[in-house]
Design a protein around this nucleic acid. Structure first.
Lengths: 246, 246
DNA sequence: TGGGATTTGTTCGTATGTATT
DNA sequence: GAATACATACGAACAAATCCC
C-alpha cells in the first residue's frame, strides 16, 4: 500500500551532464535495426520483444524502443497486444493468400507504370541488383530473401510514386515474413531468372508480358509454400548486437 | 550507462490526481476522435495539431496524444516532421492519381471476392447503407463523403480478409482526404446510384460488370476533382469538443 | 487461486530544437 | 542576427496489468 519511495537518496543527485546533445533520432536507428533483424529472420516470428531488453541492448530508454515498435506494428511486422507487449508478427496461414493477392495487384500497377519508360540508368541498376542476387546464391537463405524482396521494392521506387512504393514495400516485406514462416528452405532462389525476364520485358515495353511474368513469379513463390513451424527463444541481446551498427 | 537521475527524484508527495488512472485505452478514443475530425474536415488539411492543446482538450497527457498522432501518421492522415510536430496531412496533387490507382486496384480484389458470394444479410446491410447515403443528400458535404467512403470500407470488410480491409480502408480514407482538398463541393453526391449498381452486380454474380461499375465510379470521382485551397486557423478545442464523445 | 516478480502504460520534468520578433 | 518563446524528444518514476509459480 505505502509503496512510495522511502527516504532513499534524498540529497541532490549529480546533475546530468556530459551528453553531447545526442538528440538525433535514435529511434530511427532502433527501428531500422529491428526491421532488418526481423526480415533476415534473426528475430523469428512469434519471438517476444521486451522493451527493457531491447532498450538495454541499444543503451536507450524504453520510450525510444516503444516508438520503434509501434512503427513496426503499423507496418505489420510486429504484433502488439494491449498490456502484453510486442512480438514479431506471425501472419496466419489464411492471411498468406490475401497479402499475396494484394501484392500482386499493387505490382501490376508498378509494371504498368514502368513498361517502356525505364531509363538506361534504371535498367542498369536493376541488372546490377539481379547480379547481386545471383552472387548471393548458395549463401544464407534470409539474405537471399531480403535481396529478392528488395528487387521488387526497387521497381516500385522507380515509379517515382512515394505512396505506391510505400504500399508495395509494406506488402512485399510482409510477404517475405510469411514466406519465412511457411515456405520450405531454399525455395526462393528460383526467382532470379524471372527477375531478369521482368527487366527484359519492361525494357522492351512489353507490358503484357511483364505483367504475366510478374504474376507467374509471385504465384510460383506462394505455391512453393509449405508448413514449417518456427523455433523458439535464443539470446536477444546477442542477436541485436549484430544489428546495432549501420 | 544510463544510471543518471534528474532533479525530480526528490519529490515524495504524490499529486492529487483524482482520476482513477483511466485504465481503459484512452488513446484509442483520441485516435478515433481525431480521425473523424480530420475526415469530416472539422480539422482542415495543413492544420497544426499541438500535443498540449489536444491533450488539454481531452484531459490526458501528451503521451497519449502522441501515440494517437503517430498512428494517424502511419495511416497517412497526419504528417509529422521531426521536432516540428504534427499537422493534418495535405496530400500533394501529384499523389492524388497514385492513391486513386492503388485504391482501384485494391477494390478490384474486393469485387472479385464478393461477386456472387454475398449472403442475403450482407446485401441487406449494403442496401441499408445506400439508403442512409440517400438520406444524407442535401446535408453536409463532409458527412456525405464519410458515408460514401464507409460504403467501400464495408464492402472490403465483407471479404472477411482483415488485411484487405485494412489496406482498402487506409487507401479510401486517404482518397477522401484528397477529395476534400481538391474536389469541388457537392461533387460526391453523384455516387449513390453507382453504389446501388455495384450491389446489384455483385448480387447477380456479374463480376465483370461490378468491376466496370466500380472502376467507372472511382474514375468519375477523381475526374471531378478541381483545385480548391484550404482555409486556416480556427479554435482547436472548440472543434475537438464535438468529436470527444462517442 | 493467490501473491510476488516482471512488464507494460502513463505522467511529467528537463533538455534540445524550431520558430519568431 | 541574437534573444526569446514555445513545442517536441527523451528519461525516469509511478501505477496497473499480466505472468508465473
Amino acid at each position: 500500500m505505502t509503496g512510495k519511495r522511502t527516504g532513499a537518496a534524498a540529497r541532490i543527485v549529480r546533475l546530468p551532464r556530459g551528453r553531447p546533445a545526442a538528440a538525433g533520432d535514435r529511434g530511427a536507428a532502433i527501428y531500422a535495426a529491428l526491421r532488418r533483424a526481423i526480415i533476415e529472420q534473426a528475430l523469428k516470428p512469434g519471438e517476444k520483444l521486451p522493451e527493457d531488453a531491447i532498450g538495454a541492448s541499444f543503451g536507450v530508454s524504453r520510450t525510444i524502443v516503444r516508438n520503434a515498435l509501434h512503427q513496426l506494428a503499423a507496418e505489420g511486422l510486429v504484433e502488439m497486444r494491449r498490456n502484453r507487449g510486442a512480438r514479431v508478427a506471425r501472419p496466419r496461414w489464411e492471411e498468406a493468400g490475401d497479402i499475396f493477392d494484394i501484392r500482386r495487384a499493387l505490382e501490376r500497377l508498378v509494371i504498368a507504370r514502368l513498361a517502356g519508360r525505364l531509363t538506361p540508368e534504371q535498367v542498369a541498376r536493376l541488372k546490377e541488383h539481379a547480379d547481386r542476387e545471383d552472387a548471393a546464391r548458395g549463401g544464407s537463405e534470409p539474405h537471399s530473401v531480403r535481396l529478392a524482396t528488395e528487387f521488387h521494392v526497387l521497381l516500385a521506387e522507380m515509379t517515382g510514386s512515394e505512396v505506391l512504393a510505400r504500399y508495395v514495400g509494406e506488402a512485399a516485406w510482409r510477404c517475405g515474413l510469411t514466406l519465412t514462416l511457411y515456405s520450405r528452405p531454399h525455395s526462393s532462389e528460383c526467382g532470379v531468372h524471372e527477375h531478369r525476364e521482368i527487366i527484359a520485358a519492361l525494357e522492351a515495353g512489353d507490358e503484357a508480358r511483364a505483367v504475366a511474368v510478374m504474376d507467374g513469379h509471385l504465384s510460383a513463390v506462394v505455391s512453393r509454400a509449405l508448413i514449417d513451424p518456427p523455433g523458439r527463444s535464443r539470446d536477444l541481446s546477442e542477436i541485436l548486437r549484430r544489428y546495432a551498427q549501420e
